[in-house]
């Protein structure tokens, strides 16, 4: 005997469907979220809807560093206290925030919003390498610090950027990798130790 479908409002279905665009959200979690918002937190849902609409309308990419901003050029790129001779290339805004937290870097940034990923078909155009090259060739930048991830994709990205910069006679450097600060060898994964041995430096 076929069960009759549970009646649901069109709006609920559309909300569930819309929530599924979020990473890691499947049909079950999407349904939970939708019911939660409609049942327990309509004010929160309204806030969410407005924030999302406002962000979509106003947030764009900074013309200089490609990070998210509401202005043509973001506040970091406009700041007079930053060193314009250094340009640090990162994959994501989260990576930029991480480098900023160190308080040990005061140069400028360029956010790729991705990385080369040959197996997924993500190429130079998808991550705006042409814009990075234009940015690095502004005459003020003396050194480009490549702070992409230490994955194969991040390494490939760093390599190709370095090659293109070399062809334009701009100095490029790669952030160092190895045993983490405060790390005890006993508890560090072998891959990292193996690379640390290969990348050892003289004292």
């Amino acid at each position: 005997m076929a069960k009759e479908p549970i009646p649901t409002a069109k709006g609920v279905e559309r909300l569930v469907e819309a929530l599924r665009v979020l990473p890691g959200v499947g049909p079950r979690s999407a349904q939970r979220m939708a019911y939660y918002l409609l049942q327990h937190d309509r004010a929160g849902a309204d806030l969410l809807a407005q924030a999302m609409a406002a962000a979509l309308a106003r947030v764009r990419h900074c013309a200089r560093c490609n990070n998210f901003t509401e202005d043509e050029v973001c506040s970091l790129c406009r700041s007079s206290r930053r060193d314009p001779s250094l340009l640090c290339v990162v994959e994501t805004p989260a990576d930029l925030a991480m480098v900023e937290q160190t308080l040990s870097y005061s140069g400028m940034y360029f956010v790729l919003m991705g990385r080369l990923s040959p197996l997924d078909g993500v190429g130079a155009r998808d991550i705006g390498l042409d814009r990075l090259l234009a940015r690095a060739s502004d005459g003020e930048v003396q050194e480009v610090i490549l702070a992409t991830n230490f994955t194969n994709e991040g390494e490939a990205t760093a390599h190709y950027i370095a090659e293109m910069l070399r062809a334009r006679k701009i100095k490029a450097s790669r952030i160092a990798r190895g045993v983490p600060l405060g790390g005890e060898l006993e508890y560090v994964d072998v891959g990292t130790i193996s690379q640390a041995i290969l990348d050892r430096r003289g004292l």
Binding site: L116, P118, L119, D120, G121, V122, G123, A124, R125, L129
Partner: peptide
């Protein structure tokens, strides 16, 4: 093959 396309695109820059 994606890898071939990506490599060709890189060589254009």
């Amino acid at each position: 093959l994606h890898t071939r396309t990506v490599l060709m695109e890189l060589q254009e820059l």
